[in-house]
Nucleic acid binder design. Structure first.
Lengths: 202, 202
DNA sequence: TAACTAGTTGACCGGTTGGTCTAAAGTTAC
DNA sequence: GTAACTTTAGACCAACCGGTCAACTAGTTA
């Protein structure tokens, strides 16, 4: 009964931790290895190149955020309250990271998107897809909200994009200010976007 | 009448171009130098360290964005229309960058904020301040809007933060999708935030 | 013309980067 | 026991990193 997890898993875990905090370029293969107590030869036994472990990091973080979204959406509350719940859960997430490291890391997917989208076209395509998925999840919830008459009926896709963009922006601000609470304090903005403009009196 | 601009200016211009596109870590001093047709010795004659030219890049980009904001706000239109105008000008900006390079670079300040805020505390402070300034500019406009009865009166600071966060988020999306037009298409969201929730019927 | 200064040049530094390779050590199956 | 295969190990590589430095050029002032 050996507890020792295998080297591959340890490497991935190590890369996730480091890249969440510092991004891709700022983390070296050596750093990932020594943090995982694995020597470099083993790293290149499991991963053809540094890029390949980035894929694992993206996959893991995407899974985490998807679960966060579904946790928010599973709650037995109104659709709009579910959207607010996303911000609350994101807030808790950032808060727990901050307790552990003293710093707000922000959204790993968002961070890597900005870092890699310009130079690395394949990476950009991946991020484009992932971000689109999140927006799609929000779209569904907006549709529910319209069905219930909570918000006026209109095309759902751009509103979902707007809400997701807003989420990313607030996370950016929370990182710059090192203040996770911003996510809760500014959650209202997402609801405003969902409601849309006050219809002019007719 | 020699046209040759001095090396210092060329270095800064080169650093701006490169770091706008690729960020800080991904651009090397050598790259900045060769792109500016200046040898490394000269670089370190003008700048004690790489970090010091980053300061110039930040300064220049901040100036650019401040001018963009004031250009939007100087227009002879309603305060809310001014806020929408920020998105339109940002759209034009990204569009022109895209025509030149084929890629949306996003907001240099936002990019560098995410890249450097975690590891480099002094940098984070600088970005915190700059981002706060932009929000303050929006605050003023919101106050005008309230004075005119365009939107309901309530504390202005969080709304300004929300609108600015939204701007950053939309730019992130525009970069991921390589679609500057998103900035115009989603500009409505900012107006929704400014209006706030539809007051519940009392 | 001599002295001084601002700017230029490129060789050079120690350290690190992503990545390779060969040899040994475990592990498994027959 | 041994053959076959997976995993570990770390020395090694060229390339590049940010940064230094002494020698040099050119323009200005005394």
């Amino acid at each position: 009964m050996v507890i020792k997890t295998n080297a591959r898993e340890r490497l991935i875990k190590s890369a996730i931790e480091l890249m969440m905090a510092k991004g891709y370029h700022a983390v070296s293969v050596n750093e990932i290895c020594s943090h995982a107590h694995v020597v470099k030869g083993s790293f290149y036994h499991y991963f053809p190149a540094k890029w390949d472990i980035l894929r694992e990091v993206i996959k893991a973080r995407d899974k985490f955020y998807q679960e966060l979204f579904y946790r928010a959406l599973a709650a037995d509350i109104s659709p709009l309250a579910k959207i607010r719940r996303i911000f609350e859960l994101a807030c808790q997430d950032q808060q727990s990271v901050m307790e552990a490291t003293g710093k707000v890391t922000g959204c790993t997917i968002g961070n890597l998107t900005l870092e890699l989208s310009y130079a690395d076209e394949p990476a950009r395509q991946i991020f484009r897809q992932l971000l689109g998925n999140y927006a799609a999840i929000i779209s569904q919830t907006l549709k529910q909200s319209m069905d219930m008459g909570e918000i006026p009926r209109r095309p759902v896709a751009p509103i979902a994009q707007a809400i997701f963009a807003y989420l990313q922006g607030v996370i950016l601000l929370a990182k710059a200010e090192n203040k996770p609470q911003l996510l809760e304090q500014l959650a209202d903005g997402a609801i405003s976007i969902a409601h849309g403009l006050k219809e002019d009196p007719s």
